[in-house]
Design a protein around this nucleic acid. Structure first.
Lengths: 345, 345
DNA sequence: TCCCGGTGATTAACCGGTCCAGTCCCCAGA
DNA sequence: TCTGGGGACTGGACCGGTTAATCACCGGGA
């Protein structure tokens, strides 16, 4: 039996380096007030002993946890299908990592659950701040979380986020671009398969969609709302294609529904893109795997996540932030859109 | 200006309830030694004050953090596409939530990075344990993490996980079932598009695949390894279909590659399932969206995650665990598999 | 020679909980 | 009346860091 393998703490390191706890702390936080030699010695000893500062002790002292929270409120099986989130998360982490922070992730099933979770996280000081996503109109999270005073960054248009510092993509502009593109290809009956009606950005997109149709002198189409799930996208597409005046182009609110739409077209014998053009949203690898490949409105989701994380750090640090949009999604044409060859109607 | 809005701690709660800190602690940890009345009073006061125990302070005292770690080592854009992980994570969280634990998630880009991360997490006592996934043959993580003594559960066959408590799905059995099914449909040239050769379960599946072919007296096929990405699945499929003796059935290692395979078949004018049967792995909603729909080997990924989390709690608590497989994936036939109609070769 | 300012380090008081050794009190039993 | 024992609760040490206050020391200018 050798030494009792005592758990090493800052005290052991200090002793081994022949300095005080304070000195070790100073060294590890890269603060001024230590000679280069001592600093060196402390690091060497720490490495030999395999010591790293205990994060609980540290955040107890500094009273600012090095963790930020993210709650996603969608059924898991749906989340799995949305390439968006993983990419978004990886963007967040690219920023967190360089500040040696971590991401606390939780999947919740309702906004109320999220509110409770965020409150708990904040009360227990588990997180230093949170990222809020998927804003609804009159989002119920705004009031309780604002009054709680939790540092947060909202992903969504300022109209929706009620004063919480926000970052968003200019969906309205992107929708307009999509519609104009399809119109330029000669399409006149353009439909849209949107996300849940309550979801803020769905509403924004729908409004922009109808506005653009009107501006171009195209007939309005009755909106179809879904829950983002593929099955619903399929159902929506089917019903659109069965309408007496069936659309010649459909814009989807994510890429999974567009894939489903492609399946439905095949099933119904409607040729894409000859008879029907499809346009996906949130471009992901998936869009390049189908046949034909899917044209999509793509944006840098990874970079978006990174930007959001950076903004959250600003908020936590109390630096001033102003709401700002990030790069507008832009159109990536592929095989699922074409100018109208067969005259329909 | 009213009160200085002092940050409330256990002390304030204790004072307000007219008891000592210790009593509050006892109440919140549901320990014996308090009258029902006092207990009640403490909770009421705490609720009024909106207090919850500071998690850093708590885990500093108890020296066991209420967080577990998970590092995923694949390119983010690939992860996004694998519905598997989100579902897996949600399974983990269903168990964590009921013990009010949290999941620390990190995306890393190499195993070395993961090793460094896990070491840091453990040294800093940020996590109470970790879940390890995607084992390679002679996985480099085993030695350092074992010697570190971090409580962990490995997702993978015991042959791969080197003594780390493990849970796995019996992929060999599942592969055998898949091959037998295709053989029963009359297929004789069955190919397989696998994951990275280094990945443990890919190897296990490949071996089982070839073994089953042999057992059935079918000709072996040269293995095709990919990186799980859809593009690679497409490329692999293309090359398989160009072979002089092209396969009439292909088994994929995940569903995203199967979708890509479907696209390639369409592109090359090979009818599925008449001329070619496709079988996906890790069944997800995606398989029901394509046309034709994809037959798949499906399993309860959510439940799998939950099981893994439960096991990790056992490990952390020092309860004995033995390696065990969870439910074997089973075949869900859909539109992409059929008995051979056109005689090829 | 004395004083002064700056560098490099220490000291000790926190941070907000947990936990254990006691203290106090009340009631049963001798 | 005294003793013993158990339930209810308190006090304070501790967890492992951070940080403000303090101090020893040294070289240089008056």
């Amino acid at each position: 039996m050798s030494a009792p393998a005592q758990r090493i703490t800052i005290k052991e390191v200090a002793a081994a380096a022949g300095v005080s706890k304070g000195a070790v702390s100073i060294a590890f936080n890269h603060k001024p007030g230590l000679s280069e030699a001592t600093r060196e010695r402390i690091f060497t000893v720490a490495r030999e002993l395999g010591w790293a500062p205990n994060s609980s002790a540290r955040s107890l002292s500094t009273r600012r946890p090095d963790t930020i929270g993210l709650a996603l409120c969608r059924p898991a099986r749906l989340l799995g299908l949305e390439p968006f989130y993983m990419d978004f998360i990886s963007g967040i982490e690219s920023v967190l990592a360089e500040r040696s922070c971590s991401l606390l992730l939780r999947l919740v099933s309702s906004l109320d659950e999220e509110i409770a979770l965020q409150e708990a996280w904040w009360r227990e000081r588990q997180v230093g701040g949170s990222i809020l996503v998927d804003f609804h109109q009159d989002d119920p999270r705004i009031a309780p979380l604002t009054s709680l005073g939790i540092p947060a960054v909202a992903v969504g248009h300022p109209d929706l986020t009620g004063g919480i510092p926000s970052i968003w993509t200019d969906d309205a502009a992107a929708v307009a671009e999509a519609v104009r593109y399809l119109a330029a290809l000669g399409h006149r009956r353009i439909a849209r398969v949107g996300g849940p009606a309550g979801l803020g950005h769905s509403a924004i997109r729908e409004r922009a969609f109808q506005d653009t149709l009107r501006a171009l002198g195209l007939p309005p189409t009755t909106p179809v709302a879904t829950g983002f799930a593929g099955e619903e996208g399929a159902r929506a597409t089917r019903s659109l294609l069965l309408r007496p005046e069936r659309p010649t182009a459909i814009v989807y609110d994510n890429d999974i529904m567009a894939v489903a739409g492609l399946g439905v077209a095949a099933e119904m014998g409607v040729t894409v893109p000859d008879e029907l053009s499809l346009l996906a949203w949130d471009d992901s690898q998936l869009c390049r795997l189908t046949h034909p490949t899917l044209s999509a409105m793509s944006h840098d989701v990874h970079g978006f996540g990174a930007e959001v994380a950076r903004e959250l750090f600003d908020v936590i640090a109390g630096r001033p932030v102003r709401p700002r949009p990030v790069m507008t999604p832009s159109l990536t044409p592929r095989g699922s859109t074409a100018s109208l060859r067969t005259a329909v109607s």
